[in-house]
Design a protein around this nucleic acid. Structure first.
Lengths: 216, 216
DNA sequence: ACCTGAACACCGTTCAAGT
DNA sequence: ACCTGAACACCGTTCAAGT
């Protein structure tokens, strides 16, 4: 409600986009807003409250509208969001999707899985599984885990027989990776996996109203 | 080589295990070693060097021995490692697997995928995919993303029709989650996915020496 | 080569005080 | 209700100096 809070979150997101998450200090945000650090506390309730609110603000920008989107569209949107705001990735892993905006995007994934004919009992698990992979992929790209490796070093060590797996794959490890293409291939495999879950389910896709009551 | 460096890493890991990653300051580590903060610099080269070395130390504890392990065993070992050292999860996403210990564990995954008959061309991608999921799952558990949600709040909002997906799944969202069982179910689906990749590959599993030269 | 001690430019947060 | 200003207990890192 208070415009001051929005002003504070705008400033924090701008600083994080420009100079990274570690540049987001209460002092820096306060200075950008034109106020004393302590003036932020009533509005965001401390540093962790500020970080939580920043994530909420980001998720609010996820694809809105009433149209149902495919799982693929949602995955692309999430990856793009992390590319635009790399600092958000760590925070997404650290907090449950509790803000109303976050729950809204989980709901869109539920709808996509329902549309695909996935049994209701499997949907919460598959939502977590797909989200975990998508966020993990995007954070690996932006945080450095997928950073280009030095092929020389790898092959040298492989030649020393210490790494038989690397030695066997030498040729395939040498070429540079197209991350866009890899993400698509991963989504292909995940979609096929989801279709396999649908296939092994009892009943016909689209008419699954009888939950299987096997719980062990 | 220098025993001092080992002593420093021991102290840093102990502090992180006890009081979390943010308690690992150069000052705190130095005090535990019984030395001045500046005395650490020649051995670890600053704070980020210290963090990198801590991750390397952890991966060195991953299942060793020459026996080939299944993908499932490796996944369990990785999850257990993150449970024991939750602070490592963020760091695993942030840095490429460059230390010799890290490369060693990647090599074990390569071997497991080769044993499963996965075409060589697909192995680096599937290794990244499976690792991304496993690390992401473990960090979600330990960092809070999978933290128990308040079902009341969710159902209330769902009842307000703002969340049709949640409303449709109400019954399934209410029950508490068995994270061990969910991890096993996810691994089942991932293994089935990998078998599907093997099945659609040209040639017989085990005799794949002709790479398909289709690159688009 | 390895370590110390003082200093610099930062943090998040508390507290008492102002309006 | 909202904000200020001083203070406290911290950071990582530099620098010059010791042995």
């Amino acid at each position: 409600m208070s415009g001051r809070r929005e002003e504070i979150l705008d400033a924090a997101v701008a600083i994080a986009d420009d100079r990274g998450l570690e540049a987001v200090s209460m002092r820096a945000v306060a200075e950008r807003v034109g106020v004393t650090p302590m003036a932020l506390y009533p509005h965001v309730g401390g540093k962790t409250g500020l970080l939580d609110a920043m994530v909420g603000r980001l998720l609010a920008d996820l694809p809105a509208g009433k149209a149902r989107r495919s799982l693929r569209d949602l995955a692309h949107a999430a990856r793009k969001l992390v590319h635009r705001h790399p600092w958000a990735a760590t925070l997404l892993f650290a907090r449950p999707a509790i803000s109303s905006d976050a729950v809204g995007s989980v709901d869109r994934i539920y709808l996509a899985l329902l549309d695909s004919g996935v049994p209701e009992a499997e949907i919460p698990r598959l939502e977590r599984m797909v989200s975990t992979f998508v966020i993990g992929f995007a954070v690996s790209e932006t945080a450095g885990r997928f950073q280009e490796l030095n092929p020389r070093g790898r092959r040298d060590e492989a030649a020393g027989r210490a790494l038989p797996g690397h030695a066997a794959l030498g040729e395939w490890l040498a070429r540079p990776v197209d991350w866009d293409a890899e993400f698509e291939a991963d989504l292909d495999d995940l979609e096929a996996m989801i279709q396999a879950v649908v296939r092994r389910a009892p009943g016909v896709p689209g008419t699954l109203d009888e939950p299987t009551d096997a719980d062990p």
